[in-house]
Design a protein around this nucleic acid. Sequence first.
DNA 1: GTGGTCTAGACCACT
DNA 2: GTGGTCTAGACCACA
Lengths: 136, 136, 136, 136
Amino acid sequence: MPIHIDERSTTPIWEQIVQQVKELILKKVLRPNDKLMSVRELASALLINPNTVSKAYQELERQSIIETRRGKGTFVTEALSGQGNEQKIKEIRESLKLLVMESSYIGVSRDTLVQWIDGYLKEWGGEDDVNRPQSK
Amino acid sequence: MPIHIDERSTTPIWEQIVQQVKELILKKVLRPNDKLMSVRELASALLINPNTVSKAYQELERQSIIETRRGKGTFVTEALSGQGNEQKIKEIRESLKLLVMESSYIGVSRDTLVQWIDGYLKEWGGEDDVNRPQSK
Amino acid sequence: MPIHIDERSTTPIWEQIVQQVKELILKKVLRPNDKLMSVRELASALLINPNTVSKAYQELERQSIIETRRGKGTFVTEALSGQGNEQKIKEIRESLKLLVMESSYIGVSRDTLVQWIDGYLKEWGGEDDVNRPQSK
Amino acid sequence: MPIHIDERSTTPIWEQIVQQVKELILKKVLRPNDKLMSVRELASALLINPNTVSKAYQELERQSIIETRRGKGTFVTEALSGQGNEQKIKEIRESLKLLVMESSYIGVSRDTLVQWIDGYLKEWGGEDDVNRPQSK
DNA sequence: GTGGTCTAGACCACT
DNA sequence: GTGGTCTAGACCACA
């Protein structure tokens, strides 16, 4: 569970953790029912405040990506909901819009963007529906 | 120059203004040498503090997107240089990565993303007609 | 971290701070990873508004001279990259031109100018000793 | 008397005029007792407000670089004072300090600076004491 | 505790 | 009229 923090980054540490856990799951380094490091373990490993890790875990739980089983620890949830969270989609579209705008300004072409997207998807496992193992 | 602020959003007001001005330029509603609303005008139109507008304008100027002429007002810059800002590209790639991650989780396919991108680019298209009518 | 403000000067306070911080770094009074005074501390020390200090710090960060770590404070950046900023060079040449013009008018010779330059460079010299004593 | 204004520049127009007049004198395009264009002439030539030209001329007069002879016009003064205006010297030293600081940051060497200085002096007429014709 | 954002209102230089 | 700067004081997220 290799997570590393960039202290300089402007994105909050707890958010960096959230993002990296998600990435580890997409990359299948972490799989459903795998146990995460405890809050204290991870905090001391990263040399940060346990509160910060806790906040990250809470956010991940809120997104139903992990779940805590009392007395046992924190685990990756079984199935990742592919339910079209409308709110989330809106956010993604908004982010994408800004991203395409910025790309336009500095001269990054459409095709380059698409290439980058494909690059990431390939890196994380190829199949188009990696995130919905039960369907199909 | 229709700008509107989302008070609830977590992104700072000044940044919302920056983004929307950029969008207006991409959409060619604002064209090179066009005058922006004055700091005071825009501030009272949006019911926000002039300082906030000022900060937005200063950031836009820093990015060479607009320029202020003393005592005259603020204007859209002549040409948008496509200088390959490496730092900026890094940021875009990072954002894109997160965005693709989120998309995977929520079940948004690669093709949908590409469609969205093409949609935005088309919307800002290259036509040279002044103030494209929103209808059509 | 001795900074002092000239209230009479026409150059903005925030810019005076920027300049003096830069000077302190060149003089090696401040070194990479050193922590700057907090916005509030410096503001109350200088009897100015925290916003003004903040603006100075933000400008220094924009120039990659310092960096802020959330909730921790503001620190001197590791390495000063000598990236050949063309725009900046143009500005320097312009300033230098004016300066030489003024010098000519007032009867300051070329050699005097060169002496002054050497004086400054020597003052900020390359020695690696921490906090060079002003005495000696 | 070729003067041109950069509307985009952040330095005030009146100051641009002051600088360029000084430069023209150093370059000997304008010589002692030469008549300057009238305020109105110059203003309409530059498409700017006469007040702005007036302000520039006032500043030049304040520095004893030009003088107005009532009913006759404005003229370049006879001899340029080489008196070591202490205040002015202080200002020059301060500017030079900042300039050298900035140069250090972006990696412009001492020798480059000296070359630039020599370049300007040569451009304006070579002799070291161009500005004090009466001595020697 | 840290820095980031915003408001309210003031003054200034430039045109 | 324009934008730039500063003050006073408030609230927020982050650690």
